[in-house]
Nucleic acid binder design. Structure first.
Ligand SMILES: [Mn+2]
Ligand SMILES: [Mn+2]
Ligand SMILES: [Zn+2]
Ligand SMILES: [Zn+2]
Lengths: 161, 161
DNA sequence: AAAGAGTTTAGAATTATTCTAAATCCTTGT
DNA sequence: ACAAGGATTTAGAATAATTCTAAACTCTTT
């Protein structure tokens, strides 16, 4: 959607505008989130980042994620009580949680539907944000993926991929 | 909305239909949730139940809550990563989280709006449930309530109510 | 180069929830 | 009534995602 160097420039600008520093850790965390729009968890991001920057710590990943969220470069996504996921899609969108594959899909929301949603609120209720989540089954998305992380399971007895 | 004895009868029926026993603990947990539709947490429910049944344990409250959810007598409500809340309103409804008071309000959803929500899904996506949450400010709901639980805070320095 | 703020880091702490295993309770068959 | 057996409750330990702490490090500014 944007070139890597454009994204990096945006990051730098946003950080400096907020009085924060554009560090290598913040760059790489942002980059891996943009690389694959699959709503990864902090742990997954940690794993991906470590391959490029083996010395980074999990605490730093959490710190960077918090910073990126505050700078509005990514969004947090919470489903039930599962670990928080992170989403680089800043457009108004809903999430579809495929219960069979575990995948999370972005669903575009027509702007007029969002307006309608606000109309269900009684007088005096002013919503600053709306969150819409579907749960169900998305056909075509094929085989249940073994989670990247991968403890041993019935169909993956050695915990490998 | 229903008399206490009707609710109790419903509970008993549902439990027995599921091969479970209608115990005093399940009764009292269900009762306190119905008494005040304020989306309490497990801890809050524990506190309320203890006044009627001082020997109940927190583990039992969690067990009962899980049972009641499975029997579809109450629903879980998760907001961000805050402790899970429980809701006895079984109608299709959205939640409005008032950020200034912390209160959670039920918002009725017109059935045709729910239908429209499903129409934003691409072909092949079948949603078994939809969840809609607003966050913002509800006017008129008056003073910020000190949480029932109550650690000491600036406007409640002794942690009492 | 020194100072100082901002950042990263490892590891400890927190906390809602789940798990474990023993005690208790209920139902059912005799 | 009694015993057996499963269901439930219970206290406490365990779990796990996240946050906190304090020391080390880095970058910018003087
Ligand atoms: Mn599928
Ligand atoms: Mn208000
Ligand atoms: Zn998304
Ligand atoms: Zn509700």
């Amino acid at each position: 959607m944007n070139t890597p160097s454009e994204n990096s420039a945006t990051l730098t600008k946003r950080l400096i505008d907020s009085g924060l520093r554009p560090t290598a850790q913040r760059e790489v965390v942002f980059k891996v989130i943009l690389e694959k729009r699959d709503h990864p968890t902090a742990d997954e991001i940690f794993a991906r980042v470590k391959s490029q920057m083996p010395t980074i710590s999990l605490a730093t990943v959490y710190n960077c994620l918090e910073t990126l969220v505050q700078c509005q470069l990514i969004r947090q996504v919470n489903l039930e009580r599962a670990p928080t996921r992170y989403c680089p899609n800043l457009h108004q969108h809903a999430h579809f949680h495929d219960e069979t594959t575990g995948q999370i899909h972005d669903i575009d929301l027509p702007i007029e539907l969002v307006a309608q949603l606000h109309h269900v609120l009684p007088a005096g209720f002013i919503a600053s944000s709306v969150e819409l989540t579907f749960r169900g089954d998305a056909a075509g998305t094929a085989q249940p993926t073994v989670p990247a992380d991968c403890a041993p399971t019935l169909n993956n007895p050695h915990g490998t991929n």
